[in-house]
Design a protein around this nucleic acid. Structure first.
Length: 257
DNA sequence: TCATCCCTGTGG
DNA sequence: CCACAGGGATGA
C-alpha cells in the first residue's frame, strides 16, 4: 500500500506526537512481534522519527525500531486501539502508535544499524539518473520499482511518473535517450512532491490512512493508475493495462512512447 | 531478470 | 470461484 508519499505523510503526522516523548512500552498484539519489547531499553525517549525509502525509523535509546508497512499496514495515533487488526502498540504517556495490518505483511524489527541496500532518495540532484539507466535492460517501470536503484517509488507512482515523463513503461531502461532520462529525472520528484502535498493516495477506504484516520487526497489526481479503459486526461485515448514484472501497469499508448 | 511466495480480504 | 491488491525477499 504505502509508497514514499504515504510513508512521508505518516512520519510528518506522527513526529509531533512521538519525538521527544518517552516510549513506555511495546505491546505485541500479534505473536509475530513477541520478543520485540526486550530489544529496546525502555522506557526511553524517541530521539528521532525519520523515513528512508518506504521504511519508518524510530530512534530509541541508541537503537532503531524499523517499521515497513508493506501492502496493508497503517500507523495510527490515538488513545484507544482503532478498529481493525491491531498488531502492535507503542505506548506513550499521551497516547499510542497502533500498527494495524489486515494482511499481516508489515515488518517490524530492532537494529543497531539500518542498511537495506537502498538506492538514493528520489529528490535533490538526480543528474546521476541518465547514466544509471544505461546499464540496465529492465523495463523502465521495473527499474523504478527496484529499491536498490532508487528508493521509495512503488506501483502507483511509477505509473504516474512515467505518464508525466511521456515514456512507455515497457521500454528497456537503457533505451531511454538523454532527453527522456532528463524528463524522467524531473518527473520523479515532481510527482512525489505533489502526492505528499495531497497527503498520499487512498485508493480504497480499506487501505491507506493518515495517522489520524483520514483518507489521503491524491487518488483524485491520478492520471493513469487504476484507470484502464478510461480516457487519457491529455488526449482521450483509452488507458491501457499490461503486466510488467507481475504488476499491473497503466499507461497511455499515445502519450507514452 | 523473472516467477514464487508471504497473508488476508475484496470484487468481478 | 478465482484474480488481484499500494511490497519485497528469495531462489532459479
Amino acid at each position: 500500500m504505502p509508497e514514499l508519499p504515504e510513508v512521508e505523510t505518516v512520519v510528518r503526522a506522527l513526529r509531533p506526537h512521538v519525538e521527544g516523548s518517552e516510549l513506555l512500552r511495546l505491546e505485541p498484539l500479534d505473536p509475530a512481534f513477541q520478543g520485540l519489547e526486550g530489544e529496546l531499553p525502555l522506557p526511553a525517549p524517541v530521539e528521532g522519527l525519520s523515513r528512508r525509502g518506504k521504511y519508518i525509523l524510530f530512534r530509541v535509546g541508541g537503537r532503531l525500531l524499523v517499521v515497513h508497512l508493506r501492502m496493508s499496514g497503517r500507523l495510527l495515533w490515538g488513545e484507544t486501539p482503532p478498529e481493525g487488526r491491531v498488531r502492535l502498540a507503542l505506548r506513550f504517556r499521551k497516547g499510542a502508535v497502533f500498527l494495524v495490518d489486515r494482511r499481516r505483511l508489515a515488518v517490524v524489527e530492532v537494529v543497531d544499524k539500518f542498511d537495506r541496500g537502498l538506492g538514493p532518495e528520489p529528490f535533490g540532484d538526480l543528474s546521476w539518473l541518465p547514466e544509471a539507466l544505461k546499464g540496465s535492460r529492465m523495463p523502465i517501470k521495473g527499474w523504478l520499482l527496484d529499491q536498490r536503484k532508487i528508493a521509495g517509488i512503488g506501483n502507483i507512482y511509477a505509473a504516474e511518473i512515467l505518464y508525466r515523463a511521456g515514456i512507455d513503461p515497457r521500454r528497456p531502461a537503457r533505451s531511454l535517450t538523454g532527453e527522456e532520462a532528463r524528463r524522467l529525472a524531473q518527473a520523479i520528484p515532481q510527482v512525489l512532491k505533489e502526492a505528499i502535498d495531497g497527503k498520499g493516495t487512498s485508493l480504497s477506504d480499506a487501505e491507506y490512512r493518515q495517522p489520524d484516520g483520514e483518507l489521503g487526497g491524491f487518488q483524485l489526481k491520478l492520471a493513469v493508475y487504476g484507470r484502464a479503459g478510461e480516457a487519457c486526461p491529455a488526449c482521450g485515448t483509452p488507458i491501457a493495462r499490461v503486466k510488467i514484472a507481475g504488476r499491473s501497469t497503466y499507461f497511455c499508448p499515445k502519450c507514452q512512447r
